[in-house]
Write a protein that binds this DNA or RNA. Structure first.
Length: 282
DNA sequence: CGTGTTTGACCAGCGC
DNA sequence: GCGCTGGTCAAACACG
């Protein structure tokens, strides 16, 4: 990776620009994710984030962090070269439309027409350097499956939110390239607040972060992931690093960190970080 | 007993 | 059609 990095992955959705290597490493916005999702690679609580002082506009910055500071290793910021273009380390997350929302079996039982394309849920993936596979994020998850992943010695675990009528899922796997990296993919939105039993710990921080109550995709993310998003959306306190876009059920949303302005529309990001899109200069 | 995990089986989608 | 793969189910099991 050169000092100046500019990635345009093979999909038009993907635009990841870095002004410098350090930007890349610090921002950790790195990888393409099967053309439909973004992978955020994290150095949780790394200095660029923590060094930002709390401000009125950024109540999130008052949150404390206890995750270890992580340094990026040589190749972790490097999207895998496509030696086999359809099976890189993330390949397994593609083509799984049938797994979205209700299970395929359930859909069959419920009379879902065969061949009917299911609408894709919002999916956001994070890469987090951690020794712990299943990162605490304030929600309660039930593991419902584990599968060996092709081309990877590490299995992928499937979790579902235990709250009734909440069909948020997440998948957790380790990068086979760098086993210290945990890839967590969140799918869907929680339709409920943080479980009360967890309040006072991680959940409390979630509540601090999200002022609007339940239902935000942001709630799906571990704290450090949220921090990342918060920082990225704090124009006053954070140096721009690039552009970010998501694909969700109805289109693509982008946010240009270079200009601190949205590129296309707020879309999902508004959902993720609602407070950042509200009038905060009032 | 309630809750969560493990794990083999099953199913759907996809490429050939 | 067949085989491969990812995703899910669900019974058995573990644990507090």
């Amino acid at each position: 990776m050169d000092d100046h990095v500019e990635h345009n992955y093979n999909t038009s959705l993907e635009e990841v620009h870095f002004k410098s290597l350090s930007d890349c490493l610090q921002s950790s916005l790195v990888m393409d994710y099967n053309s439909l999702e973004k992978v955020f690679k994290f150095s949780p609580y790394s200095s660029p984030f923590q060094s930002v002082s709390p401000s009125v506009n950024n109540p999130y910055l008052n949150l404390t962090s206890n995750s270890p500071v992580v340094s990026s290793s040589s190749n972790e910021g490097e999207p895998k070269e496509n030696t086999n273009d359809k099976s890189d380390q993330m390949e397994d997350n593609e083509g799984d439309l049938h797994g979205v929302g209700e299970s395929s079996k359930q859909l069959t039982k419920q009379g879902k027409k065969k061949g009917e394309k299911k609408e894709r849920e919002v999916r956001v993936a994070f890469m987090t350097k951690s020794e712990i596979d299943h990162l605490e994020d304030g929600y309660r998850w039930r593991k419902y499956g584990q599968k060996a992943v092709k081309n990877s010695p590490y299995p992928r675990s499937y979790y579902r939110c235990t709250t009734q009528k909440c069909n948020v899922k997440k998948r957790v796997e380790r990068s086979f390239q760098d086993p210290s990296i945990v890839i967590t993919t969140y799918e869907g939105k929680h339709n409920h607040p943080i479980p009360s039993t967890l309040r006072g710990t991680v959940a409390a921080e979630h509540l601090l972060v999200h002022r609007g109550g339940g239902g935000s995709l942001l709630h799906s993310f571990p704290r450090h992931h949220q921090d990342f998003l918060m920082m990225k959306h704090s124009p006053a306190n954070y140096q721009s690093v690039g552009s970010l876009s998501y694909e969700h059920g109805h289109g693509t949303s982008s946010y240009n960190f270079n200009n601190n302005q949205p590129v296309v529309d707020y879309g999902l990001l508004q959902d993720i970080v609602p407070s950042m899109f509200s009038k905060n200069e009032s």
